[in-house]
Design a protein around this nucleic acid. Sequence first.
RNA 1: GGCGGCGUAGCCAAGUGGCUAAGGCGACGGUCUGCAAAACCGUUAUUCCCCGGUUCGAGUCCGGGCGCCGCCUCCA
Length: 491
Amino acid sequence: MSIQIYNSFTRKKEEFTPLEEGKVRMYVCGITAYDRCHIGHARSAVVFDAVVRHLRSRGFEVSFVRNFTDIDDKIINRANQEGISCSELSEREIGHFYDDMDALGILRADIEPKATEHIPDIINLIEKLVEKGVAYEAGGDVYFSVENFAGYGALSGRNIEEMLAGARIAPGENKRSPGDFALWKAAKPGEPKWESPWGEGRPGWHIECSAMSMKYLGETIDIHGGGLDLIFPHHENERAQSEAATGNRFVKYWMHNGFVTIKGDKMSKSLNNFITIQDILKEYHPEALRLFLLSKHYRSPLDYSPEAISENMAALDRCYNAVSEAERLSGMNVRKKRPVTDAAAEAIQELEALPEKFNQAMDDDFNTAKAIGILFEAVRALNRLNDQAGKKPSALYVEPLKAGAEAVKKAASVLGILRQDPAAYLKERNLAALAEAGLDQEALEKLIEKRNQARREKNWAEADRIRDELLSKNIVLQDGPEGTTWSAGRG
RNA sequence: GGCGGCGUAGCCAAGUGGCUAAGGCGACGGUCUGCAAAACCGUUAUUCCCCGGUUCGAGUCCGGGCGCCGCCUCCA
């Protein structure tokens, strides 16, 4: 069974056949480093992270490039507002980007190039375009002439006439035609600038991705990704520049993720309805955010709400509990070798089928929603196995428990969840809840002992009072055969 | 106006022609427990926005409505 990818260019699912067998060249447009990242950025990052993880788990050698735009109008404006230099601003925001991405468990790209470090490559590419007659210099600017590139608009599904009808030339621009876009912008006073054959200036936005993609991955690459909003004009322009320069196809598969909406509207700076990754992570575990971002197919819109993240937190807890319990049970020293129950045998079979089913879902255009469903079914099977192994211990459960826990963790790792040691995850969560309740472990143990004393005396009212008091502080008590344990609630 | 997408249970969400419409959250019942919690088991959409059509057969294809959203300017 091959991998299918929805190609935005052809608007249908296609069988994925990389240019070179077993290898994948992939480029994803990174951030413009001028502000904190919001959930929309997180979605794009998490989606393409899952793509890379899955391709690698399927045995592909992936060369993954993600750029930083570190010179741009937005950066210049923001730096001026703050009274700092553009490089100070972009360095700071790249630092914030890494803080957020590391927390989310986003793998680093193999190469993470910055526009300002590739000015000579950009200038070379522009020169090539000027030589070929598809770009022209005007007043220190250089523009790409869209009318000289046949097929402009093919990616975004629009034709030149329509676009020209609506487009206008802004004051101060020296374009010949309203559809043309800047490859190089002449320096204005006080702006960062570089020497070029057309005088001092700086690169336009689109050209950097073409230059860096071609430099590190070659003239044609397998996958180029980004948010849906990049299709036009960014990717349309990238494609035009690159193919005009080389005469070859630029990208084999274009992939675009859908937006994060909030109350149904697109999250954006102008509507002022965005929420930053940093803010979410103050409230929620990063893996709960990841699970939420992967809970819907990557091309569909995804509506954000705090409740939605909470729901995923509950599901994540269940997964960690199951794996933790399986690991605990498999570590117990049991000598008896009584055969496993029928229910356990069924659960074992289900767990054995997990990798195949999971891969099938992911192979189908990275259907993470389906894959998560399959993972959760496996978690339920693992719990069933835990149940049986706990009730009637047998040495014959040890291997299936270990294998089951491993299979669940392996599948989860493609989604980038269950990355923590389960016991450590639960402990961390519990200690955080304890701190929030204003208790320390000793005080809690005392309360538990006090309650157990009451229980021995069958003073149920007092026992329940203590339990309810702790519950109101989000500490849940569980009475088991081996005594009373406690854990953080899901509040 | 042009182009594109979406409408599946209380909520979120998979499913694009055919066995019982995945899965999660929530709710309810059972096992366990002093009672609970966790876990497990069971129940929770005779039906997929509406109306027509194609077909032996449609949530899935076609036509027409209604509703929502996005792109067309910087945007993941």
